[in-house]
Design a protein around this nucleic acid. Sequence first.
DNA 1: AAAAAACTATGAATATCATTCATAGCCATG
DNA 2: CATGGCTATGAATGATATTCATAGTTTTTT
Lengths: 304, 304
Amino acid sequence: MLELRHLRTISALHETGSVSRAARRVHLTQSALSHQIRVLQAYYGLPMIQRRGQSIELTDAGRQLAALAGKVLEEIQETERDIARLSQQACGSLRIVLECHTCFDWLMPLMDAFRRNWPEVELDLVSGFHADPLKLLEDGSADVVIGSEHGSRRDIVHHPLFRFEILAVLAPEHPLGAKRSLHAADFADTTLITYPVPEDRIDLISKVLKPAGIRLPRRTAELTVAILQLVASRRGIAALPSWGLKNYVEHDYVIARRIGTSGLWSDLYASTPSKTSTCPYMRDFLSTARSTCFATLEGIVPLK
Amino acid sequence: MLELRHLRTISALHETGSVSRAARRVHLTQSALSHQIRVLQAYYGLPMIQRRGQSIELTDAGRQLAALAGKVLEEIQETERDIARLSQQACGSLRIVLECHTCFDWLMPLMDAFRRNWPEVELDLVSGFHADPLKLLEDGSADVVIGSEHGSRRDIVHHPLFRFEILAVLAPEHPLGAKRSLHAADFADTTLITYPVPEDRIDLISKVLKPAGIRLPRRTAELTVAILQLVASRRGIAALPSWGLKNYVEHDYVIARRIGTSGLWSDLYASTPSKTSTCPYMRDFLSTARSTCFATLEGIVPLK
DNA sequence: AAAAAACTATGAATATCATTCATAGCCATG
DNA sequence: CATGGCTATGAATGATATTCATAGTTTTTT
């Protein structure tokens, strides 16, 4: 008999186009999904997916279920919001600390949606730089930190968001553009253009350059567009998450290259006090954060 | 995490207003539902039901879920019909044999709905009297028999529908109306008004009168209203399922009395060849038959 | 009043069945 | 042709839904 878990996986299959990716999305093994699919096919007497070489495709029947899943899961979310409202757990605060400037890109539309769904929740961005953002959670002066994990502290839960690749960004005719991927040595004698944060917060420095003993002059800018401006004007090289670069690369405004042979990857988490991590609007925030990120951000990978 | 099973039980709770009745509806024990409800309450942090003396009532939160369940389960049924259509299992025949005349009452609207949902299925009522209706299934000249169980035959599945009470129907001023319940001896010296079927198909005769050694003159009529006419005109006593009597009793057209101390009850099954019992439109027919019966027929009880 | 017959709640035992593990086959790509 | 990605599948495992056994309530019956 059909269960919501089936709809959740069908939905993930639909969005990812691959069993293993879908499995990571719903926090199960690939095997589990494969068995689920089998059950569905046996139940309805029809294949739900079709192998398309590397990836898979939903069949007509699968798409019917995916459409159903979309509708149903949406309706469930709405109802759960209503119930949260009934339980008077729909008000409170969601003060967000961003460790990573680029996250503005996807956070803004998310916050808009959230504000619509939870009008009673006081939504805020905590501004300024913070040496120890998780401290803000302990203080009670913030509710979520979006950033990397930073070891386990008591009473704080790290919710995995996704893994993304950091690419080197160069001016279009930059000589290094000839290489497919850049290594630490390639960066010598250039200026690094970064957000105005300490060095240890910049993965390119802490994970690549520093281990190789390379120190570079830095220049900072607050906004992503400003950084790209500087790169395009040949003031130096930047390292930015792949997802925000697509448009600029397609317009030949800048070019992007892999860092190291397998790329420089970084993991993003949403950290919350364990107490509030189960409250309805927080759950909703986290789940819609994940789903909108995976839906809109290209090249990111489920975590854990 | 919410699952469809929860929605199915919430829906049953909503319709029956009692945990144990709901449990029988969804073919689980009362304990199972009680645990499910507990899980839901823990998950949402709110009670879902409230004891109202004997029976229970849904809380606001429970009603939210019930509303969701209604919508979602309906949508699922639609999608499953679409998928059945895709699998080309949406055409075939549904030729219904009625062992019990009164069932026309609820079968007609059901057939209308079914015809809308499964236009490609050839829907028919097999008319005439049949000494051995299950034979028709084996012949392949019918697809469902609605009637009592008749022992287990191979390759035939009996799907329980419901248990109903058969009441004695009397003219308003009939002297027997003074008694709360009628026993075999009370029927002596009356005429029995029945459908035109053999004696062994009439429960009042086979289960009550014959064991008591009482034989009565009979008079028959095809239609329920005709039988009621005759009863009202004091031509005799009839025995009919309780559900169809309500209107006539309320208008004092006839009166109805229990037969025996605990009542005369009869079980209704839908029997199908085991082969076709899992085909999509048959499953749909059976499930909507059950749900519409329980929704519209008063005084019936889930079976098994 | 007392007894019987409904009903519901709950902890412990059980059974079911979803998930993982281990593995093999398949398809791309360098 | 080897390597790394993917998927499918049977057997083992683990989680957890369901039942069992039981006690507490409320309603109905005598």
